[in-house]
Amino acid sequence: MFLGTLVYGIVNSVILALVALGFNLTFGISGIANFAYGALYVLTGYGVWILLNEVGLPLFLAAPAMVVLTAMAGALLYRVVLIRLRGMAISEVIATFGVGLAVLEFFRYLGFIGFEYTLPPLLDGSLSIGPVFLDLQRALIVIVGVTLTGVLWLFTHHTRLGLAFRGIAQDEHTAMCLGIHSDRVAMFSLAFGGGLCALAAVVILPIGTISVDAGYDVLLEALAVCIVGGLGSAVGVIVASFILGLAQTYTAMYMGSHWMMIVTLVAILLILTIRPSGLFGKQKELEERI
């Protein structure tokens, strides 16, 4: 029982990390908090569903196609809206949240509600870890999560674009005077964030149903992980995902599943009281605050 909870707790943690990675990447690079993140997640879900059931594409084409399309949607969001608001944090939040609301509520208006909106699992079957049975889809989520984290690390540390990302993240002006196009990098950051979000949706959605409300939940989860871990910190996202993921699962197991949401909210309140910049976030130095 304990072991089973541990395994599912880890799966839950990886799900949280996957959901938060893209949000965190965009923020870490361009300082833009993309509140349309949940909408991109749901957009991917319904997009794959439509490609599968209305267009008749096979899953192995529909899923990658939506990852690419969602990344493009992210880029478009920057190119059309955010480029004109750059640097005004509140306006960025309002604009992305507004776009997200419009997309999500449009799906509701179109009538995308019901249990028929599910995605088939990419992998069928299950495996056993000792006495615990785990379906292959959840195992796949863990594998994708771990691989993606590794690939992202390699990307940001050893590629040209990755280094440009880190440059812009650390000092925009210096990066610009080295020939780095700040708007293009910011657009890429939205696209990469969107692509990661879509990838998360493609592997996670098959274990549940696609719904408009999932958009709001995903945004909330991504925010919770980033607040606890510290916005913009990759290590923070991973640590916070495990803290929240395990805490949620154990709470659900031993106290009842309706307590799960409380865990996240309590964690946010606690961290904001004790360390407002998050576990691994950059806290302003005392002299900077005065």
Partner: peptide
Amino acid sequence: RPFYHLPAYKNLVIPLFS
């Protein structure tokens, strides 16, 4: 205005990629 969180030589690798 260096890239504070990169090692000194990595600060130069960014422009060397241009």
